[in-house]
Design a protein around this nucleic acid. Structure first.
Length: 569
RNA sequence: GCGCCUGUAGCUCAACUGGAUAGAGCAGUGGACUACGAAUCCAAAGGCUGGGGGUUCGAAUCCCUCCAGGCGCGCCA
């Protein structure tokens, strides 16, 4: 992590200089906007200026001599108005850093900044009373990629889906399903008012019939009825499995599907309530039990147990959080859609009431996906068979395009998703641009195999067993700016993974992929790896090594996003 | 009404959290296949960062105020 290390070392130097153990908070080491300024740049002298009360340019001069003597990876340093310190890296340093790719292979880019820390991520958690729509795809992609990124940073990662199979909504869904179920046996009962859309429900009932036929029919007083309890459980399970299948289609899988109902089956709900009462966190009013959320974060108190004696959804939240805490995770990460942002304060309030530090709970509020069709905004609803069903989308454009697309933007950005565009012109998706870069490299390898050059020593690469263990990158020669640039981009990859993790931003990986692919395509168009002059085939081994490294980095980054790296397309 | 979020090229989005001349892709324009895949590359064009005010060496970014849009404000889940 070259950037991170340099930043740390400059920070250490500054700490001594200003005799403050905290150093400077907004110190940045970054690539300059204009590459003519150099490989990297720091704003150190400008952030120091107000502290030291000196002219930034003078501070820069002092820092310059200090840096040049202390950092042997730095080739030269220049100072620019109003006080930027720009520097270039030594070629030898870059080459040495490339060797890390050879050494680490599929683990290149990993770090252990999260070693010994466990994190639980909860995402999607859509109610099992309908199918997933395209918007849910965003949370699936985000959650899964984030999980991969946290793992790459050494965290212990646990992925969880919370199934709301308890309470009135699940009950209502079951009632609708029962009605349709009975129709199959010639019994007509009125469909519940403002019930769920019939097509979604009958879909589930179809599958239920396939699996269980008339198992839930019971005779009672000479008439036929449905055994409500077990029916509800099974019909919800059908919905859950549909959701599970859809998510699996886009490569999103969980360590655990946590059922809300289990909170009431297994845990001692009453004892929890007693405990909270004793701690004066719960009180009675108007025949209901209230939680003092307003004491912590929320703007008003919330009902835990209704007048009718039934727990609210909020009661489940409390039990669920207690359960999570008991399981011992260091960090609990929630991904919620912006339509749930009202939920944040409540969640925080529970956390505080339980005595959790605020930074233990990380809540990501993702902006919603707006579905557009030929410029017209579509209303989100849960009807099936229409354009915005997630499963249809995956089946139509493929897992890779969907995953890549949903990984392109920060979760802060409200996205416009044009369905017809995504479906008919799938070639526009930049995922093909990145994958094409990989396929081109594979194609070169294939070519070399065919040319019968296996036995030649390609600077340590063995075509035969497809490995590059013996490659020594320090012997490489950069013949042009383009090759050096490619190499430099590759050594920045570990920093990308690190910051993607720190700011919960898989899109940084996506942006990086695009950049690396773009630099590769340019290189490919301008320089040759295989030369065929009058039937005599020769291979530029330096360039060959370089693209082998590009191939590895592309694979690693794509894997974080769970997008495939194809050999042919 | 109150609260959260958003407004950047014709369209979809960046800008490393206050830094240098605001950058990419798509669409449109002009060019590059007789050697590794043209799903590629190159070039030009496109902007009062919604409007106005403020803070400082420096603002798309922070503060105030309008304007426009999205979402949330149940003893539903």
């Amino acid at each position: 992590m070259i950037i991170n290390i340099l930043r740390q070392r400059i920070q250490n130097y500054i700490k001594e200089l200003i005799k403050d153990e905290h150093g400077i908070s907004n110190l940045a080491v970054e690539e300059p906007k204009n590459e003519e300024f150099g490989d990297l740049s720091t704003n150190a002298s400008m952030v120091l200026a107000p502290v030291l009360k000196e002219n930034p340019l003078e501070i820069a001069e002092k820092l310059k001599s200090e840096l040049i003597s202390k950092f042997d990876e730095v080739e030269d340093i220049s100072i620019a108005e109003p006080g930027f310190i720009n520097f270039n890296l030594k070629d030898d340093f870059i080459k040495k850093a490339l060797q890390e790719i050879v050494r680490e292979k599929e683990k290149y880019g990993f770090n252990n900044s999260g070693k010994g820390i466990s994190i639980q991520l909860e995402y999607v958690s859509s109610n099992p009373t309908g199918n997933l729509h395209i918007g849910h795809g965003r949370w699936g992609a985000l959650g899964d990629s984030l999980s991969n990124i946290y793992k790459a940073c050494g965290y212990d990662v646990f992925r969880e889906y919370y199934v709301n199979d308890y309470g009135t909504q699940a009950e209502k869904f079951s009632e609708c399903a029962q009605c349709i179920y009975l129709r199959h046996f010639g019994i007509n009962t009125p469909y519940p008012e403002s019930g769920y859309p019939e097509d979604v429900v009958s879909d589930a009932v179809e599958r239920l019939l396939e699996k269980y036929n008339d198992r839930f029919i019971i005779e009672k007083n000479g008439g036929k009825k449905v055994d409500g309890g077990s029916f509800r459980k099974e019909v919800i399970e059908i919905m859950v499995s549909q959701i599970r299948e859809t998510l699996a289609l886009m490569g999103v899988e969980y360590d655990r599907w946590f059922y809300e109902s289990s909170l009431y089956e297994n845990s001692n709900f009453e004892k929890v309530i007693e405990d909270l009462k004793e701690r004066n966190l719960i009180y009675s009013k108007d025949g209901a039990l209230w939680f003092r959320t307003s004491m912590f974060a929320d703007d008003e108190d919330r009902v835990v147990i209704r007048k009718d004696g039934n727990p609210t959804y909020f009661a489940s939240d409390i039990l669920y959080l207690i359960d999570k805490v008991k399981r011992g995770y260091d960090i609990l990460l929630y991904i919620l859609g912006a339509d749930h942002h009202g939920y944040v304060d409540r969640l925080r309030a529970i956390g505080r009431a339980l005595g959790l530090a605020d930074d233990k709970i990380v809540i990501i509020i993702g902006q919603l996906v707006k579905i557009v069709d030929r410029g017209e905004t579509l209303k989100m609803s849960r009807r099936k068979g229409n354009l915005y069903n997630l499963r249809d989308l995956i089946e139509e454009v493929g897992k890779d395009a969907v995953r890549y697309f949903f990984s392109m933007n920060s979760f802060d950005t409200p996205m416009d998703f044009d369905v017809s565009l995504a479906k008919q012109k799938s070639n526009q998706n930049p995922v093909y641009y990145v994958q094409y870069a990989h396929a081109r490299i594979e194609s070169i390898i294939e070519k070399i195999k065919e040319s019968g050059l296996e036995n030649r020593d390609l600077n340590g690469f063995s075509v035969e067993n497809f490995s590059f263990e013996k490659i020594d990158t320090s012997e490489m020669v950069f013949k042009n700016k383009c090759e050096r640039k490619l190499a430099k981009t590759m050594i920045l990859y570990p920093d990308v993974v690190y910051s993607a993790c720190r700011s919960n931003a898989p899109y940084l990986v996506t942006q990086y992929l695009y950049r690396l692919a773009s630099e590769f395509h340019y290189f490919y168009n301008n320089f040759r790896i295989i030369n065929d002059i009058d039937g005599r085939v020769t291979i530029d081994t330096d360039r060959f090594v370089l693209i082998m490294l590009v191939r590895q980095v592309l694979q690693n980054a794509l894997k974080l996003l769970n997008v495939s790296a194809p050999r042919k397309m």
